[in-house]
Design a protein around this nucleic acid. Sequence first.
DNA 1: TTGTATGCGTTATCAA
DNA 2: TTGATAACGCATACAA
Lengths: 334, 334
Amino acid sequence: MTTIKDIAKTAGVSVTTVSRALNGYSDVNEATRKKIMETARQLNYAPNTIARSLVMKKSKTIGLLVSGFIRESVKDNFMLDVLSGANDYISNTDYDVILFNTNSSKQREKTYQQLCRERQVDGVIIQGIKTDDPYLEEIVNGDTPCVLVDIPKMGTKTGYVMTDNVAGAYDAGKHFIDLGHEKIAMINGHNQAFVSKERLEGFEKALSESGLSLVEVMNGDFTEESGRQCLHDLIQQHPEITAVFCASDLMAIGALTALKELGKTSPDDLSIVGYDDILLARYVTPALTTVSQDIHGLGYEAAKMLVGLLNDEKPDKTIIKHELIIRDSSQRFQ
Amino acid sequence: MTTIKDIAKTAGVSVTTVSRALNGYSDVNEATRKKIMETARQLNYAPNTIARSLVMKKSKTIGLLVSGFIRESVKDNFMLDVLSGANDYISNTDYDVILFNTNSSKQREKTYQQLCRERQVDGVIIQGIKTDDPYLEEIVNGDTPCVLVDIPKMGTKTGYVMTDNVAGAYDAGKHFIDLGHEKIAMINGHNQAFVSKERLEGFEKALSESGLSLVEVMNGDFTEESGRQCLHDLIQQHPEITAVFCASDLMAIGALTALKELGKTSPDDLSIVGYDDILLARYVTPALTTVSQDIHGLGYEAAKMLVGLLNDEKPDKTIIKHELIIRDSSQRFQ
DNA sequence: TTGTATGCGTTATCAA
DNA sequence: TTGATAACGCATACAA
């Protein structure tokens, strides 16, 4: 491992000069710079970012929380899409991404702030945690620049990125109403998720504007299996419903499965609208009508905002556009 | 940012003692240790891994190459599944994962070795690069422990993890033969990919054992669109074929699309077998018969091997099991 | 234009 | 059981 010291020695100059030559300072003679560059190349020199970080107090790394980075969450592409979007932006900067796991029991006791400070990341993108996470406040009020995904909280160094869940769910509700449905239910996520409240709110708003109210709200946990369970319960308790709004595509797909198990089909027996527009949505049969979120864009914008924060811009909030994608799982009530 | 120096000052001891107390050395008085621990807690101390790395010459980070981490590769879950698998293993160790981008033009000129040395990673997992990548040799022969995914090359510090592509493709060929097909074609990936050669080899072996030979081999580039293109060309040139083996599920899905565009259906007009068993495979219609690779396991085993290398184990090769998953896109020739 | 000296936060060596 | 002190590789204030 060659260091600037080695270069200095073989080039016959001081480490200071080497450092300045390598970093493109103007106050170094062209001849010596050439010589230094050349010996650096010959010695196959690579700067040690660790050492640089220590003295600069900047690690040029961005932390990305991937708690619960488990197989189920791989299926739901959400976390990976955010990661991919963030990475796409960051790859065009001089930052690198470091993955923070919090699902391992070992690190469970560490707060997000501790993780950040130990690894000395310059900033962090936090996603996939619950609104009542005990360590959330701490990081929001901490001094590590931070961007939250789908959690609307601001701090002096904290901004957030999210989709307008109220409006998205409202569109889903409006869609059902436009199609003439009246017996409508919802399969929501768990109540600790901020998006659950928002989507319920937006959906109910659309119904109430037409003088309707929800027949029932079941609570799943966003997974395919919970969607399946909920639909079974739903049909048993309220066989009259003709339309169901699911707070995630995965739950909607589970609901589709349950429907098949009951010998029924969508959209003939039940119109279903999901949320997220995950990759699978367009490939299942029937293709899922859903509220599309640009999840990749969510990660991209989060990274962009974070890099902005690192350049001393003010914290902000970004709302990513949504769109109702009408496919085959919803149709006019007949 | 409190340091051990601060702790030393307020606890009235030397930094040496603080360091040893915090790291659980035995040669420190219980009383002083208690005091140190307590003040560390009060001062909300978090150790600076950067400083530690510098002196220990170990960063406790593992680099993961995610070159071409683009949206198309998100659709194909391969890279993300490997990432997820690697992360799953690593999250149970005391290593962290750092993502290395090489798709950005800026970093294109840097070799993998340079990336590793600059970030001082203890080891690296390399995936998604071509066999003729000019920088591959360098890293294989370098001194950074390294595990290659799907590239069979060994070095003093380099092992690899892959699936048995020859055997997998052989199974696909055997499947067609068992179903009575005789006019068989293949849509392969590009020739720079090692897996392309392997899959062709295995598939041809199965056919030749039954006295058959391939009607045609088209070369795509593993993407959905290329599969679509290839199938169009194939049908036009060889309308007699009854079965096609695609070297990736994505290409198989593209082929399915092309078939629909031609007003034909699978498996009635054409039996199709894919490769990878990506998530989509079971959700498309018809559900895709494919050779399943445990991609998550590939990443998991790669990480496991790498951590082994970091503990001075010898480089090794691991073959991940494959399995032919028979679904609806293939049927008996009639 | 160049060099000397100092410090970043930590661990390790050695002596007390 | 403890504490000075020197490293690790780099950047920078200051002096020359």
